[in-house]
Design a protein around this nucleic acid. Structure first.
Lengths: 316, 316
DNA sequence: GAGTGTGTTGCGTTTCATGCAATAAACAAT
DNA sequence: ATTGTTTATTGCATGAAACGCAACACACTC
């Protein structure tokens, strides 16, 4: 059985010998020595058990078997090369299905616009958007790109920081018409505060006066808490109370004035430390074009400051 | 341009990984180490600029690009292997055109029967028979097999001795009815002796009494000489005189009695030394099946003593 | 007869592939 | 929660193989 030991790479060299008519010219074209060409052709012939070339003075010519064989394999090697070029050319247009995973609220609010502008550029890419608040291993679940808040534990993933989480206290104008706006963090104790309650328990609010100080916990209360951030936002819009939300969750409401930012002289958090939003993907150097293109698109579109923090300039 | 640097041999390994589902199993099947498999797959991916396999704990799986690519190239590699097997299998049936060259008279008299029995065995071989009395370089003129008398000068050719040249003095019964049969070599001086005249001048006859003695020249004469051995044979059959011919040229006439052997107690030659008939071909180990089969057939059919020296047993 | 171009092959050097072993990751078993 | 197991990665020392130089052979050209 010859098939497993045959040096397929030699097929290119053999074709070069056929095209040039001599080992010497083939060696020049392949940037190798004549002796290397002579040896590799000879080794291939011995593996087959037959000559492919007659050796003449001043050139070689194909034997009958050589002509039949190389005529048969030439198009096959060309088709392999063509498939390689088509699928892996450096300037290949991104195509195929891009699988994107993100937390539910973030995904709903931010990704449709990002994906829309991405797909306007890359029409051959379809997107499979999977939203889940639980962390899902992108390798295990075959996600190309995953968005996550906080430092990911899996060090094999490439973690690209996108933006800091920036929390804002906000309330609807209707609510504020009936309750004086809080002037200091402690004033929130007298307000109805709507809180998110998830896997890590009920949301704890933290504030600090400036970037260098530590966060101080503030235990607020209110008539409603939920594990659904969107419902809490709707309740706030309806005047049920104040919320402490990441800016990317209420950027449109802030821009439209349907929610008003409060206590902006302070910095707010729901954890003792500030966190970043990350974009995670498996490969830095060997990513498919669709992934690479999307990663670049996201970085470009979000920018610094991030696009969801530009709602104030949107109102002017 | 990836095409010239791509390691085509890796394609087999990649397919084995696909088939087995892991580097470990692929390594076992390929009788290599896991680290060698890991390295070769990784090198191929770096050459392409993309991953072909996701690495999971306990196995690997194909990426989308990997699946598309390996699905595309798998049949191509299989076709290359198939072409290799079809054309170069060790037990491949000889096929194609066999080019045979021989001296004219020998070719006319001996080769048709040899080729007939050969082609009865190998029906897919066609023969291109080229007869010429001048030596022709088999490599230059693309002959697969050449027959020649005397030691060939070209040492690159494989020279297979077939049989010694055995010369016989012969005359037709009609001639002998009118001229007493010679009883000793010197009696030939009184006979009409028909001689061949070719590129090397008029034929000189030599005799010796037994195998260990030197040949003695005998300058005979006769009414006819020619560069066409067949015409001389016809003249002898018509009773024009005696001839000194190699046994392979007149074996049928000797068997039929239309020519009668004379002076058989002596050994005859047309050169000072005895010569052999050789079969020449270019390759010992890398010959195509048709050539190898024909060479074996000829050796088997001619045998020892050669088939053209068995005319005496054919008459009984 | 001398010169030239091509192919072959011995041989010393260089390059590369190899497998071992250590390590990492994640799943399974306890 | 800890330990064990399986698979994959990678540093490194070693050995295999490929390399090109140079000498040689052959046959054609001048």
């Amino acid at each position: 059985m010859k098939r497993n030991t045959l040096d397929l790479n030699a097929l290119r060299l053999l074709q070069t010998v056929v095209d040039t008519g001599s080992f010497t010219a083939a060696a020049q074209r392949s940037q190798r020595s004549v002796s290397a060409v002579s040896r590799e052709v000879g080794a291939f012939e011995r593996a087959l058990g037959q000559r492919l070339f007659y050796r003449h003075t001043r050139a070689v010519s194909l034997t009958e078997a050589g002509r039949l064989y190389l005529d048969a394999v030439r198009p096959l090697v060309e088709q392999i090369d063509s498939a390689t070029e088509t699928l892996f050319s450096d300037d290949a247009e991104p195509a195929g299905v891009l699988s994107v995973n993100a937390p539910v609220a973030f995904g709903q609010r931010q990704l449709p616009a990002l994906l829309g502008s991405f797909q306007a550029h890359y029409r051959d890419v379809r997107v499979d958007l999977r939203l889940s608040d639980r962390f899902e291993d992108p390798v295990r679940l075959a996600h190309d790109v995953t968005f996550r808040v906080g430092q990911p534990a899996n060090s094999t993933l490439i973690a690209r920081p996108l933006a800091p989480m920036r929390y804002i206290v906000a309330g609807a104008p209707g609510y504020l018409a009936e309750h004086p706006a809080p002037q200091a963090p402690r004033d929130l104790l007298k307000h109805a505060c709507l809180r998110y309650q998830g896997d890590y328990g009920r949301q704890q609010w933290y504030w600090r006066a400036h970037a260098e100080s530590a966060y101080t916990p503030l235990t607020v209360d209110g008539p409603l808490y939920s594990d659904d951030a969107v419902s809490l936002r709707e309740a706030a819009l309806a005047g049920s109370g104040l919320v402490l939300f990441p800016s990317w969750l209420i950027d449109r409401e802030l821009a439209a004035g349907t929610l008003v930012p409060l206590l902006e002289d302070w910095q707010w958090e729901v954890t003792p430390q500030q966190r970043l939003i990350y974009m995670l993907y498996a490969e830095r150097e060997l990513a498919p074009p669709k992934t690479r293109a999307f990663v670049n698109h996201v970085l470009e579109q979000i920018g610094d400051p991030p696009l969801w923090d530009r709602w104030r300039s949107a109102t002017r």
